[in-house]
Design a protein around this nucleic acid. Structure first.
Lengths: 197, 197
DNA sequence: TCCTATATGAACAGATCAGTATATATACAT
DNA sequence: ATGTATATATACTGATCTGTTCATATAGGA
């Protein structure tokens, strides 16, 4: 089995699902937009849901890699990286094809608690949280005076800002939700006794 | 035209749409779940989208009224009310039928920029923002030293926390996202020079 | 050349979707 | 009692959905 056709399908389907929604996108539309035959699609994926799961796996890898690579490009210190998180968020928002968070949207369309798609969405958010926690723990090590409970609590607070910014941007409450979240993050870091911010 | 049947339909449809999603709920399912005939439904609403818009109007009124009535019950001072916002949020999350924010979910299913449903969802968020801003402005008047730009910025930061909490709760990252947001709100208020918090 | 793997197009099945048509029932006001 | 408004059940239309079937094309390896 050559992998290229399958990967091509997943990559193209991602774009269509992201811009058009999952339920609103039929398999026939995918045929039209990707040029790949329906027969081929169902040779690679037993059901549409399986294709969606593969799309979300790709998006998870794509987004987390891009996001934290950009964070590392913008800053090297843990503190700098925590603030860079919100600059990268703003970069994401300013991309012309930004259409909200694919996982929030998917979890809205497939909201049954036992739906594999829903559960894969929650998994993505937990992975994003873990990556953020990792940076906060490095900051903790650097500064020496943070208990690990504070690290978890601080990470959750920063994560609240990040997810809130995605919603405010997607729902047109804010134009620069990433930068607003960054200012709030500065306050939270200072309030938690982080030095140097 | 007796209003009761129409209102009954909107109220019952709200429950079904909220628990089951908009696209995933067909008109035939609404007939089954509400006991109201399809003929009646289409006498009151020309299309399914019109029914959804009516449901969202009801939900907007319902949620904003309940939310800020509870806030006023819990506290009388502007500062107390700002903190109570997050207690009420937590109350909402702990309701056994909590299934996320209906407007975030609807805007995920109807994401075209010119879709009336999408636009009604953004409108709801703007109204929630305005109500929050009103409390912050009262606080501003009380404390006398806040410029109105700071009031807007502070409101946006609190709103970030509120929306983030909805996502973290709905996507199972946090169990008590409302209380976590409240702690962050305390820090933000202090960082913005609010006295008495 | 022949075999195999992978691709394609096109028609189809069976279900479900939004919305309509028709005929009928119920309740109330005059 | 009779007209009017609102309700009902049921069957239907035509479109669209996921997924299948089948016949065929293409390309590479032995």
């Amino acid at each position: 089995m050559r992998p290229s056709k399958r990967d091509e399908l997943v990559q193209e389907a991602l774009k269509v699902f992201y811009q058009n929604g999952f339920t609103a996108t039929g398999m026939d539309m995918l045929v039209k937009k990707t040029g790949i035959s329906k027969t081929s699609m169902y040779k690679h994926f037993r059901t549409k849901d399986d294709l969606i799961l593969a799309v979300l796996r790709l998006r998870d890898e794509q987004l987390r890699n891009w996001f934290f690579r950009r964070v590392e490009e913008l800053a090297s210190s843990p503190l700098g990286q925590l603030l860079a998180v919100f600059d990268v968020l703003e970069e994401w928002f300013q991309q012309p094809d930004f259409q909200g968070c694919m996982f929030i949207k998917a979890s809205s369309e497939f909201q049954r608690a036992d739906d594999p798609i829903y559960n894969q969405c929650t998994e993505h958010k937990k992975l994003m949280f873990s990556s953020l926690l990792k940076i906060v723990r490095q900051l903790e090590t650097d500064q020496g005076n943070l208990s690990s409970e504070i690290a978890e609590a601080l990470t959750r607070q920063l994560f609240l800002l990040k997810e809130g910014a995605i919603i405010l941007k997607h729902m047109r409450v804010s134009v620069s939700a990433g930068l607003e979240a960054k200012e709030a993050a500065v306050s939270l870091l200072q309030a938690n006794g982080i030095r140097g911010v």
